[in-house]
């Protein structure tokens, strides 16, 4: 038995949550293609520590993970789907593009929309055939503008990071497209109800400060949005 197989066995034999996390971490750091099926299985164990490690491993392995990840997305395990989209977003392989495009707008689970929105900006555009690139970037932009109106703050936050990445890509290859991308960022910086999102949009805009025209800005912290304090689910006695 070679060492990767030993690492795989350790995952399969783990009999506690802590051992599982450790075993998946070890397998993930092998970076071996043979680890892919086991890492993908670990996305569905309902163990966040193991899933985080598995996603990191799959991103590290990169394009060899893409095909099995796309297959996994066909099933109905929502927890695993979220992690799989996250892995695809992290890998940035253009084969995942249509999946991300659809998931960012339409997925039922906010964690999936969140991961997809981020990933839409960070696609490895240079791996895409050049005749397809411009159309795809336009699709990504239109989708992200739409996702900037998602009811969930964290999805809008992710869309802002997606726009930022798109702006970074465009500033290198198509600087004339930049104003189209920074316009929605300015809109978010000024008008989103969440101060956290306005701040994040500002951070994105600051990088392209010299390349765009800055209108008069509204005071960043002035909106009286109510702070949503995380609930701990009252009604349970410990």
């Amino acid at each position: 038995m070679n060492s990767v197989q030993q690492l795989i066995s350790a995952v399969e034999e783990a009999d506690s949550s802590a051992k599982l996390v450790e075993a998946v971490q070890n397998l993930a750091s092998s970076g071996s293609e043979d680890a892919v099926p086991t890492l993908i299985a670990a996305l569905g164990y309902n163990n966040p520590g193991a899933a985080v490690a598995a996603v990191d491993g799959l991103i590290e392995i990169g394009e060899k993970s893409v095909k099995p990840l796309l297959q996994l997305l066909d099933n109905y395990n929502y927890g695993a789907r979220a992690w799989a989209v996250r892995a695809l977003a992290g890998i940035g392989d253009p084969r995942g593009f249509n999946t991300l495009l659809d998931a960012a707008k339409n997925d039922f689970a906010l964690s999936v929309r969140r991961a997809a929105a981020r990933g839409l900006g960070t696609i490895h555009w240079q791996q895409m055939p050049s005749e397809q690139r411009s159309t795809s970037q336009q699709q990504a932009l239109e989708t992200l503008i739409q996702v900037c109106r998602d009811p969930e703050w964290v999805v809008r936050y992710a869309a802002v990071t997606g726009l930022e990445a798109l702006a970074n890509a465009a500033s290198e290859t198509q600087p004339d497209k930049l104003p189209q991308i920074t316009a929605p960022l300015l809109e978010m910086a000024n008008n989103d109800e969440e101060v956290a999102i306005r701040a994040r949009a500002w951070m994105a805009i600051h990088q392209h400060h010299s390349q765009i025209e800055m209108p008069n800005m509204k005071k960043l912290a002035e909106s009286d949005d109510e702070k949503e304090v995380p609930s701990r689910g009252s009604g349970r006695r410990s």
């Binding site: 701040a199 500002w202 951070m203």
Partner: peptide, 14 residues
Amino acid sequence: EYQVRELTPPTPTL
């Protein structure tokens, strides 16, 4: 949110 309370308009520095 606690960090950005101190932001000063009109050109916010983070």
